[in-house]
Each structure stands twice: as structure tokens, then as C-alpha cells.
């Protein structure tokens, strides 16, 4: 800490002196590139707003609550896609959150040091696998398995619930939710682990000293870091909302709204992936860009929110890790 102070004072002192021209140039050059990132984000938003203006002017807010998607008549409404995105990502959270919390607790509380490293390595490997690989695997391995084994089994015993009604296609919301949950699991797990590690040791020790078991102490640690964990979950949600390739390959790509998880659906990201190349009319492109803009804004809000939560919990040094 002391050394930092010295360095800082050195710079302050150097302000009075004649500055080295190289220093001036270098500082402003790096600052220029840093500013480029700000400009880039603004430019991205501006470009999409410009291109989607046509569709926004024609449909207005109705774009988000209409469920027509008819390129021939140039009538567009994004509701089925918004619905599909919401349902598939919420489903993935339901599956991924308990699992990743379990992993985070295992890594911080249970695992001995020699086990901690390989386990976190394997979990991080899951994050490194490209989306398209998940897609290919889901398409050829998971979907047939869902169709032949899981979905008939569920509908046999839980078929009375509307969620599990309908023919077992294999592709559909359930498949998308499962594949998404595998993909967002590592990010939730690793950030929760960091957040849990940032819990002061004294918290755990105090509760152990009062005679609680280790699980009860862990629960206190979990409660202590709940806003950070919430941030991790929200970050995972952001990932799930924007995930494209894997979802496109397993969700079935049908713009319908149905209560059953077995039915095919469509998401905002996958409609972009599927229809952009064939979009010919200006209105079509404009409507698609508006969907992209919506995704952009949603993920920016979600990510800002999550980052703020995580930053506020972990100390400065740790927060930047995530």
C-alpha cells in the first residue's frame, strides 16, 4: 500500500514539472483507444437504431406484443420470440442454479485442495466449448435421447400437467433449456465460488463456534453473499438470453406460443441466425435488426445490473476477476 502511495505522489509531483512529451503522447494514445471502446458501444446502439427505425415507425410498441411473423405481407411482431427466449432461459436457470451453487459450495467448503483445481478446471472447460459443438452434440445425441426416453417417461407420469403435454418431438423448449443450462452453469458456478470465497472467515468461524454444523455455517455464508450470487445468476441469465447456435439447433424453430415444454419454439437470437441471410425486403431487415437491438438493450441492462451487484459484494481486487 505504501509503495502505491509513493508512486501516486510521484505522478502528482510530475504534474508541476515539464512533462516528458513521450509520456503525454503515450498517455493520450492509450486513452484514445480506451475511448474507442466507449464509442464502439454507442456506435453499435446507433447503427441498430438507425436500421430498425423503419420497423419501429411502422409497428411502434406493438412490435413486442404481436405474434404475427409474415415476411410475405411484411407484417412483423416479436412476441413468440420474446416468449421463447424468456421460457428457455428461465428453464435453464431452474436447472443450472441449484447445480452451480452446489458446485460452488463443493469447491469452497468441501473439496480438499488437490481436488479443487481439477474440478474447477473441468467446470471451466465447459465454458470453453464453442456453442456450435453444444449444438451438434445436442442435435445428434441429446435430442434423440429426449425423444425416445425422457419425454415419453415424463409424459407418462406427469402428463396431467400442461407443461408436459404433447407429442415428444425431442426438439423444443425442454431441449433448449437443458442445453442452455449446461452452457451457463460454469459462469454461475465460478462467480459464486469467488463470491463465497470473499465471505470473511470470521463469519463462518463465529457460527461454528456457536455450535452449528458445517452446513449451517455454509448457509450463513450463502446468506451473507446472496446479492453476489444473485448477480452471478443474473449474469448467467444474460448469457442464456443471447445464446444462439446451440439453441437454434435444438429448439425446433417454430414461432408459436404454447404452454408445453415439449413443443418447438423460437428465440430472438435464433430467428436472427436463421432468417438474416434470406431477408430481402427493407422492412424485413429492419424488423430483424429491431429484434437484435432489443437483445442488445436487454443484455446491457442485465449485465450492468449483475456487474454492479458483483462489484458491490466482492472487494475491488476480486470483482475485476469476474
Amino acid at each position: 500500500m505504501e509503495s502505491v502511495l509513493i508512486t501516486r505522489n510521484t505522478f502528482k509531483a510530475s504534474k508541476g514539472r515539464l512533462q516528458n512529451p513521450g509520456d503525454f503522447l503515450f498517455k493520450n494514445l492509450t486513452r484514445f483507444f480506451a475511448a474507442l471502446i466507449l464509442v464502439l458501444v454507442v456506435l453499435m446502439a446507433y447503427e441498430m437504431m438507425r436500421t430498425s427505425a423503419l420497423s419501429w415507425n411502422k409497428f411502434g410498441f406493438n412490435f413486442f406484443i404481436r405474434s404475427v411473423w409474415d415476411p410475405v405481407q411484411d407484417e412483423y411482431g416479436a412476441l413468440p420470440f420474446i416468449y421463447g427466449t424468456l421460457v428457455s432461459s428461465l428453464l435453464s436457470l431452474i436447472i443450472a442454479v441449484p447445480l452451480s451453487l452446489g458446485i460452488a459450495v463443493f469447491l469452497t467448503e468441501v473439496a480438499p485442495r488437490w481436488l479443487e483445481r481439477p474440478v474447477s478446471f473441468f467446470v471451466e472447460m465447459l465454458a470453453g466449448i464453442p456453442s456450435i459443438v453444444y449444438g451438434v452434440w445436442g442435435f445428434f445425441v441429446m435430442v434423440p435421447w429426449l425423444r425416445s426416453t425422457v419425454e415419453p417417461f415424463i409424459s407418462k407420469y406427469l402428463g396431467f400437467i400442461p407443461l408436459f403435454r404433447g407429442a415428444p418431438y425431442g426438439v423444443g423448449m425442454l431441449a433448449a433449456g437443458i442445453i442452455l443450462s449446461i452452457m451457463i452453469l460454469p459462469i454461475i458456478a465460478s462467480i459464486s465460488r469467488d463470491v463465497l470465497k470473499a465471505v470473511p472467515r470470521s463469519q463462518t468461524e463465529a457460527s461454528l463456534a456457536l455450535g452449528s454444523t458445517r452446513w449451517q455455517a455454509t448457509r450463513i455464508a450463502l446468506a451473507y453473499s446472496r446479492s453476489g450470487i444473485f448477480g452471478a445468476v443474473v449474469l448467467g441469465l444474460g448469457r442464456a438470453i443471447g445464446e444462439t447456435m446451440a439453441v437454434t439447433m435444438v429448439i425446433g424453430n417454430r414461432p408459436t406460443i404454447s404452454a408445453s415444454l415439449f413443443e418447438p419454439g423460437y428465440t430472438m437470437a435464433s430467428v436472427l441466425a436463421n432468417e438474416f441471410t434470406e431477408a430481402t425486403s427493407e422492412m424485413y431487415i429492419s424488423a430483424l435488426v429491431e429484434i437484435a437491438l432489443t437483445l442488445f438493450i436487454i443484455t446491457i441492462i442485465i449485465n450492468s445490473f449483475a456487474r454492479l451487484l458483483i462489484w458491490s459484494v466482492t472487494s475491488n481486487e476480486r470483482a475485476q476477476k469476474a
Binding site: 475511448a35 453499435m44 445464446e243 437470437a269 438474416f276 437483445l295
Partner: peptide, 20 residues
């Protein structure tokens, strides 16, 4: 703020950068 926006940009879906 650059740090923050960079993190946020990291979370923007890749398909959106494709659209841009």
C-alpha cells in the same frame, strides 16, 4: 466507466455483433 462498459460489452450476444 471504460472498465464497466468493457465488461458489459463482453456480455453482449455474439449474434448482435454480427448484426452490427
Amino acid at each position: 466507466s471504460v472498465r464497466f462498459l468493457t465488461d458489459v460489452l463482453n456480455g453482449v450476444p455474439s449474434i448482435v455483433t454480427g448484426v452490427v
